[in-house]
Amino acid sequence: MAAEPRFAKTHEWARTEDDGLVTVGISAYAVEALTDLVFMQLPAVGKKVKAGESLGEIESVKAVSDIYAPVAGEVVAVNASLPAALETLGADPYGAGWIARIRPDDSSQVAMLMDRAAYDAVVKSQPH
């Protein structure tokens, strides 16, 4: 059974898979807040990222946002079909809407992110 996703305050989620890789995406809240998505730039496979570094970019209504790496490591796979089907991010943000898989430098990093309850509290404190 897949682990529950954990969350960064910048609205990315990360989930450790059975093979030790970390799947990364953006939260349902982030997708809803960004509204109509029009373009996404994925990271290159093989890219090494530090936690908090830009992993990719996404454009909604003329607004461009960075997608930040929630953990440090190497990008080993990307969801190549996603940029042509951005609606998937809203329809299944924690499943088919995954963005990248990272081989983490330190497998304990995911545990340091927020659990869903803590993230929900962050979302409630966001300006509207």
């Binding site: 807040a33 960004l34 509204t35 909604s60 209504v61 003329k62 607004a63 966001q126 300006p127 509207h128």
Partner: peptide, 13 residues
């Protein structure tokens, strides 16, 4: 980012 206009794009526009 925490300013009331920082939350959602449309409010700032």
């Amino acid at each position: 980012k925490q300013h009331p206009l920082g939350g959602r794009p449309q409010a700032f526009y």
